[in-house]
Write a protein that binds this DNA or RNA. Structure first.
Length: 211
DNA sequence: TATTGGATCGCC
DNA sequence: GCGATCCAATAG
């Protein structure tokens, strides 16, 4: 199967969040290979999206910004470009992994038009290959609940903070995305994003996509 | 330097 | 519904 290239990710974040449904994520680690089909995503649409980690930050490249401190690279309005979120301005197809609730990770792929920022959050995958390894990592047997959640799928695929900044389009990367069958539009549902109560009216935007 | 709370999960 | 568990993002 064909690997998705960076052009795939260099589009409007909402478009990518829909287009990536039905594609395959594969991780290749010393303990084995695991693959899942993407069946649920959310779009986090850059500096104008109150739910996005770069909300309110300047949408210029952080490379040209003057550092305020070692951690804070740029400040304007409410948001900042930080060591964690700066990847959302980076090369489309890069991996954005962050830790949450002290014990889990979440996976995003950087996706935006040139000069913008944004990421596609992977909320659920269907286990396809390497299911025994996924079961072992998750310490459960029930296939349905192996990877049906953003942090569950990270555990199942062996994704941790070491994946931060990896280029999913590069053959050298331990993670890649593969083309799948074409998905007809009528097979995609949209809904509000989950757990973003802090995001004001953006809480209701239908930026979650389900295959 | 100190405080706070989260793009979650699993159990109750 | 609720606790686990910790680090990045803020405020001071």
């Amino acid at each position: 199967m064909k690997r998705l290239n960076s052009k795939f990710f260099e589009r409007d974040t909402l478009k990518v969040a829909r287009a990536i449904l039905g594609k395959y994520i594969t991780t290749n680690l010393p303990e084995g290979k695991t693959t899942g089909k993407i069946i649920e995503t959310e779009a986090y649409c850059g500096v104008a999206d109150p739910a996005c980690h770069v909300y309110g930050a300047n949408n210029l490249s952080p490379l040209g910004a003057t550092p305020l401190t070692s951690k804070i690279l740029w400040k304007r309005g409410k948001g900042r470009i930080t060591e964690r979120n700066k990847i959302l301005f980076g090369k489309p197809g890069s991996v954005y992994v962050y830790s949450i609730y002290g014990m889990y990770f979440c996976l995003n792929f950087v996706a935006h038009r040139k000069g913008k920022a944004g990421g596609v959050f992977i909320r659920s995958i269907e286990p396809i290959n390497g299911i025994e390894l996924m079961k072992k990592r998750r310490k459960i047997k029930d296939i349905k609940s192996i990877a049906n959640g953003p942090s569950k799928l990270c555990i199942a695929l062996g994704i941790n903070k070491d994946f931060y900044g990896k280029d999913a389009c590069s053959p050298k990367s331990p993670i890649c995305l593969l083309e799948g069958n074409k998905i007809p539009k009528n097979q995609i549902k949209s809904a509000p994003r989950i757990n973003i109560d802090y995001a004001g009216k953006a809480k209701h935007y239908p930026w979650r996509f389900i295959l």
